[in-house]
Design a binder for these strands. Structure first.
Length: 804
RNA sequence: GGGCAUGUGGUGGAACUGGUAGACACGCUAGGCUUAGAACCUAGUGGCGCAAGCCGUGGGGGUUCGAUUCCCUCCAUGCCUACCA
């Protein structure tokens, strides 16, 4: 009587067992620890395929590490503050809190149905005051350390809804709800001095076991550049304009200066000059996002002012350019059209002089020349190479007190103020025009419960909240949600501790040994978290310099070659597939279909393939019971081959898990092993040695597959051993080096690099006899016939190439 | 605009260090089982060609005995671009 594979029943039973045993609650013990963390989700309502993929990867690694006898901590929680809750609140007339909490409940049960081995005793939600109380405390401590300040900065302003819009809420320059033309507006906001840590953030990147592309992106984002600060005297005044340039060697080619529309000089000129005022108004219509600024048509207007070139003393015109960013450098750029693409385009458009001062040899002199080279038209600096010229020019500027060497960063301080309701209140109060941090014993500043549709800036309209401070009035902005997600990895270790932010568990578990999440977080979230960790360290709250030792960035889940999205109508709901095939099938499919870093193309049909494999495994093992067979002394060739394959598979799977997270190829090799089991070994009249080899293969398959498809494997294990063996999760199979290889190997024969034949050779064969044998192979002889062999290239046990 | 990736059969992907391109799957074709279908099993399956063989890893060029892999160049797509998370 066969038992059909019934994932619904098996998975429920096994999950109940894990629950009863509290198997995944982690505690400090003597084993080596492993903190495995997947990026916590925003509770949008339902799990999507990206979550399933992310969390399956984390679970596979966690289970594999447990089988390797690591003490594994794998927590899960909720990034619960954010914009979508406010939108949903307005659309559905529920409070952001109710909406969020019910989403969490639903998604938690979905996560559990996937069989993820989380320690739920450390669950956290960022919208709980138990969590954000400590975030407020960290902020006030940073304030006391002088790392927090207030300044004006630009936001997208919707004049109809009278609200600040996020970049994604501005579509084609218009507010998504009102349709009104959005304008840039300057408002006062809180900033954290992340730039104070720029050097450390840059230098310690190299200590991280992260993908190179992410490290490079972070380095480029920080953008440390060595250059010069150069002073240009404004003609007719005693004021100077400071300019940062990475190319002081091109200073003799400077033919204009351009200031940002946000520059003080521009604003002053606009008061008296209508054209300039109109120009600044136009510049305000570009969305306050770097990509839009950079793609906008480069426009400029003359100020009528000119500045004195510090070395030639020539007068050059001062312009206002809409492409000059106020946030980078000094908000002024030195225009060298011959050697900068942007300056070249600008000068061509406005007929400004283009003076070549760098030469890269005689053949190519088409401007602009962006490479470094030899200086020309540069007085005493002619004939020098760019590098040397730069430092000599800086020396000269220093002598004249008109410039100096300067290190500049692209990284800007972190603006953390948001004019929204559903976020962590910023713990500051105002009294007599002064701002004060809320004292520790008055924390948390609780976010008041508000119903849906309370307007664009609800806290500022809420008198009870504003006046709830003992003295003065409360800050009504809330934190950027990146604040919430910048330290949750640390709080997980002590999430059940109401009295302290961190405890003895914190430094036991930290740092996170493996952090898994989408590549889209490569810069912002990961950089903010790295900064937070260093700040927490300097506050004496955690040990160590970095939060995430190893990083795995997973690719997106696509459908029909495109990102799944409601607007494209190509979404696939994971739940329907879990219900139909079971969690093990979905997990296997996700891990098999593509390596973790690459994007994964969803296919309904291929899911069936994964299901089919599990059914075959189930049917193979159904009715199979453990027999205590002593290891036979002799094996047939067929038995030897199966044993080879079994041990090769264990090695392959271990290597793939350990060094590359290549679950797809690991699964492929497990499938190969299953496919290679001879029929006769499974028959009831199989010999003891056949049964021995079969058991070895089956046990290895089930162990290797357990991290990926844990329910079915644990069930098979229990059925097979009938309780006589330890839990499957206690041991990872080991391979025997002596059983990895056979004596024969296939050698490829090439003539002039083209495949002409193959021979099986004994490994002990000498090079000479291999050459003889290869050259006498029938097909090879045809190609060698009558030709002179110029060279023979022989790569041991791989290839022999006759060059004729 | 800038930064970082990716591109291999009808499809997802494999080839890890320059050494048999297409493992493992999906799909398809033929056969078996079946009243029929589903499921399952067996065999085949990059293109052209009767065959020998030739062609083939986004396009073009290069290095090499040998290139999916290294170099140059062009094209396409994706992610990020500081208020989506």
């Amino acid at each position: 009587m066969r038992n059909e594979y019934n994932p619904a029943i098996i998975e429920k039973n096994i999950q109940d067992k894990w629950d009863t045993e509290k198997r995944y609650q982690a505690q400090i013990d003597k084993r080596e620890k492993f903190y495995c963390l997947s990026m916590f989700p925003y509770p949008s309502g339902k799990l999507h395929m990206g979550h399933v993929r992310n969390y399956t990867i984390g679970d596979v690694v966690s289970r594999y590490k447990r089988m390797q006898n690591f003490n594994v901590f794998q927590p899960m929680g909720w990034d619960a503050f954010g914009l979508p809750a406010e939108n949903a609140a307005i659309a559905n007339e529920v409070s952001p809190e109710e909406w969020t909490k019910s989403n969490i409940e639903n998604m938690k049960s979905q996560l559990n149905s996937l069989g993820l081995s989380y320690d739920w005793s450390k669950e956290l939600q960022t919208c709980d005051s138990d969590y954000y109380k400590w975030e407020q405390l960290i902020f006030t401590k940073l304030y006391e350390k002088g790392l927090v300040y207030k300044k004006k900065s630009m936001v997208n302003w919707d004049p109809v809804d009278e609200t600040v819009l996020a970049n994604e809420q501005v579509i084609d320059g218009k507010g998504w709800r009102s349709g009104a033309k959005v304008e840039i507006k300057e408002i006062d906001q809180w900033f954290i001095k992340i730039t104070k840590y720029a050097d450390e953030l840059l230098d310690s990147i190299d200590t991280l076991d992260w993908p190179e592309n992410v490290k490079t992106m972070q380095k480029n984002w920080i953008g440390k550049s060595l250059g010069a600060e150069i002073k240009f005297k404004i003609n007719g005044t005693n004021d100077f304009l400071k300019v940062f340039s990475t190319r002081p060697d091109t200073i003799f080619g400077a033919s204009f200066l351009a200031i940002s529309p946000g520059h003080e000089i521009a604003k002053k000129l606009a008061e008296k000059n209508e054209n300039i005022r109109n120009f600044l108004d136009e510049a305000k219509k570009i969305k306050a996002a770097e990509a839009d600024m950079a793609k906008a048509e480069k426009l400029g207007i003359e100020t009528g002012l000119s500045v004195e070139h510090p070395l030639t003393k020539d007068l050059i015109p001062l312009w206002i350019g809409n492409f000059v960013l106020m946030e980078y450098g000094t908000g002024v750029v030195m225009g060298v059209p011959a050697h900068d693409q942007r300056d070249f385009d600008f000068a061509s458009k406005y007929n400004l002089p283009i003076n070549q001062v760098i030469s890269i040899g005689n053949d190519s002199n088409e401007l602009p020349i962006l490479d470094k080279g030899l200086l020309i038209n540069s007085d005493e600096f002619n004939e020098l190479l760019s590098e040397e010229a730069s430092s000599k020019i800086i020396d000269k500027l220093e002598d004249l007190d008109l410039g100096s060497k300067l290190i500049q960063y692209r990284l800007r301080d972190w603006g953390v103020s948001r004019q929204r309701y559903w976020g962590c209140p910023i713990p500051m109060t105002y009294k007599d025009g002064q701002a004060y941090p809320v004292p520790e014993d008055e924390l948390p500043v609780i976010l008041p419960k508000l119903s849906a549709g309370s307007g664009p800036t609800p806290l500022s309209l809420n008198k009870d909240f504003i006046n709830s401070a003992d003295q003065g009035t409360r800050e009504t902005d809330t934190f950027d949600t990146f604040m919430d997600s910048s330290w949750y990895y640390a709080r997980f270790t002590s999430a059940d501790n109401k009295d302290e932010i961190f405890d003895e568990n914190t430094n036991y578990w930290l740092p996170v040994d493996l952090y898994i999440g989408g590549i889209e977080h490569a810069i912002l979230h990961l950089l903010y978290s790295r900064f937070f960790h260093k700040a927490l360290r300097d506050l004496g709250l955690v040990d160590g310099d970095e939060p995430f030792k190893k990083l795995l960035t997973q690719g997106m889940v696509l459908k029909d070659g495109a990102k799944m999205s409601k607007s494209k109508g190509n979404t696939v709901d994971p739940q329907s597939f879990i219900d139909k095939y079971g969690a093990d099938t979905i997990r296997l499919y996700m891990m098999f279909t593509a390596p973790p870093e690459q994007s994964l193309e969803w296919s309904d049909k291929s899911v069936e393939g994964a299901s089919r494999f599990l059914k075959r495994l189930w049917n193979l093992c159904d009715g199979l019971k453990y027999e205590d067979i002593p290891e036979p002394n002799n094996f047939t060739q067929e038995e030897k081959e199966l044993r080879n394959k079994t041990h090769q598979t264990i090695k392959k799977v271990t290597d793939d898990f350990e060094t590359r997270y290549a679950f797809n190829t690991a699964i492929a090799s497990i499938m190969e092993l299953l496919n290679s089991i001879p029929k006769s070994f499974v028959e009831s009249d199989a010999s003891p040695s056949q049964k021995f080899c079969l058991q070895e293969a089956v046990v290895s398959i089930v162990q290797c597959l357990f991290p990926i498809a844990p329910h079915i494997c644990e069930q098979i294990w229990c059925n097979f051993y009938n309780g006589s063996q330890n839990c499957i999760e206690k041991s990872w199979p080991k391979y025997d080096e002596n059983l990895l290889e056979s004596d024969m190997v296939s050698l490829v024969i090439q003539v002039n690099g083209k495949l002409r034949g193959k021979i099986n050779i004994d490994k002990s064969m000498s090079e000479e006899s291999i050459k003889d044998l290869a050259s006498q192979e029938e097909n090879v002889m045809k190609f060698l016939d009558g030709k002179e062999i110029k060279k023979i290239i022989y790569i041991k046990q791989k290839i022999i190439n006759f060059v004729i």
